[in-house]
Design a protein around this nucleic acid. Structure first.
Length: 288
DNA sequence: AGGATAGCCTGCGGGC
DNA sequence: TGCCCGCAGGCTATCC
């Protein structure tokens, strides 16, 4: 389940693979996952599934373009071509962006396949299709029409930024942290982990949180995500590294997935329930 | 109008 | 062994 750390890890590894390389062509196997600036709200009008993709359409997907740079905001990744065109990828829950040999199996749910000029292909897969691909003619369009509604990136968010937006809000702090308009990049796992680190209960109303606590929450959000980035994204289940060792993901999680188990801080059983429509785990004793 | 909730979508694991 | 059900959850639309 990709959150900010997985997307940042993807950005770094993908940079080595495709920056400076040229996309020779692109194959669209499921048109619905793509939204172009020409598509009206609610669905696409042209280039319907089954129809041969237009030249304009494939160029919007960077066919014939060379990759200049990769940028990230929150959980979204922007692939920017030398032409200035942009492909923005959002992985949602089950999305993947992988670079593999052009002879390799593209796998199930492969919706878009780019052919790279060095014998590899880049594949966008997404079983549940909560993710997608958005194209823009300029980075400015991406920032003005899609990224403009996102809050500050979670790796850099400050307690002041959180407090100024939330200090009058009646919603729970967990619901606020999950809201990408408030802060971009926090998902269910790291929301619980950051709140545990900050000793703040997920159900606390934002309006009842003091400035010093907002500072602590901001600091813990940054630290939790930064630590996960250095480990290549810790929320990947079943992760096995190149030597076959199991990932350290579970060890990194103090509360997520540990409902009923002993709190790592006080030893009491962790509480589990639904907050903001999400499974949530916290410690009654440590978090106030 | 802010905030809570339904629905989208598929894989997987538990129970029978 | 196989089927069914519930759950996982980021985000948008919709309702209250």
């Amino acid at each position: 389940m990709p959150e900010l750390p997985e997307v940042e890890h993807l950005r770094r590894t993908l940079t080595k693979r495709i920056v400076g390389r040229r996309f020779e062509s692109v194959a669209v196997r499921r048109r619905e996952v793509i939204t172009t600036e020409r598509d009206p709200p609610g669905g696409f009008s042209r280039d319907q599934s089954g129809a041969a993709p237009s030249r304009l359409f494939t160029r919007e997907l960077l066919a014939g373009d060379r990759v200049a740079t990769l940028k990230r905001l929150g959980k979204q990744l922007a692939i920017i071509g030398e032409s200035g065109r942009v492909v923005c990828v959002h992985l949602g829950m089950t999305g993947q962006l992988v670079v593999i040999d052009h002879n390799a199996d593209i796998g199930a749910h492969a919706h878009v396949v780019w052919t790279v000029d060095n014998g590899t292909i880049m594949v966008f897969r997404d079983a549940r299709r909560f993710g997608g691909v958005w194209t823009y003619l300029h980075e400015q369009s991406l920032r003005e029409t899609r990224w403009n509604t996102l809050g500050p990136d979670a790796l850099h968010v400050t307690g002041d930024e959180l407090r100024s937006v939330l200090h009058r809000s009646s919603r729970s702090i967990k619901s606020a942290l999950l809201d990408q308009h408030v802060v971009a990049g926090v998902g269910n796992i790291y929301a619980d982990e950051a709140l545990f680190d900050a000793c703040v209960r997920p159900t606390r109303r934002c309006a009842a949180i003091r400035a010093a606590e907002f500072e602590r929450i901001g600091g813990c959000v940054r630290a939790t995500l930064a630590r996960a980035v250095t480990r290549g994204g810790s929320s990947i289940r079943d992760y096995v590294d190149s030597e076959g060792r199991a990932g350290r993901g579970q060890l990194d999680h103090a509360v997520y997935g540990r409902g009923g188990l002993a709190c790592v801080r006080c030893g009491e059983p962790l509480e589990s329930g639904v907050v903001a429509s999400r499974t949530t785990v916290w410690c009654r004793g440590c978090q106030r």
